[in-house]
Amino acid sequence: MLRIPCPHCGARDEIEFTYRGDATVARPGPDAGVDAFHDYLYLRTNPRGWQAEWWQHSSGCRAFLKLLRHTVTHEIRAVATATETLEVPGA
């Protein structure tokens, strides 16, 4: 079971959180076309390894966080607030 270190609340069980997708994709600007939005919404690297991802502490402080998590070992190496950047190893 994941124990997620919320920077505001401390380590909490995964049941307090909600996964909200790959955090390496960014919503395109207003002038971008269908292709850019298609890639943003649908195409995924889906790495077998480290992934930066959005999680919301939905049953806690409700902040959106970025987690650097390994998709095989489930290890959580880093956590950042929404405006901070996370370096993804090998990406």
Binding site: T18, R20, A23, A26, R27, W54, Q56, S58, R62, A63, F64, A82, T83
Partner: peptide, 13 residues
């Protein structure tokens, strides 16, 4: 609510 919070945090901080 989550949709609004997500976009405020991720797209338009």
């Amino acid at each position: 609510m989550q949709h609004l919070e997500f976009h405020l945090a991720s797209a338009w901080p």
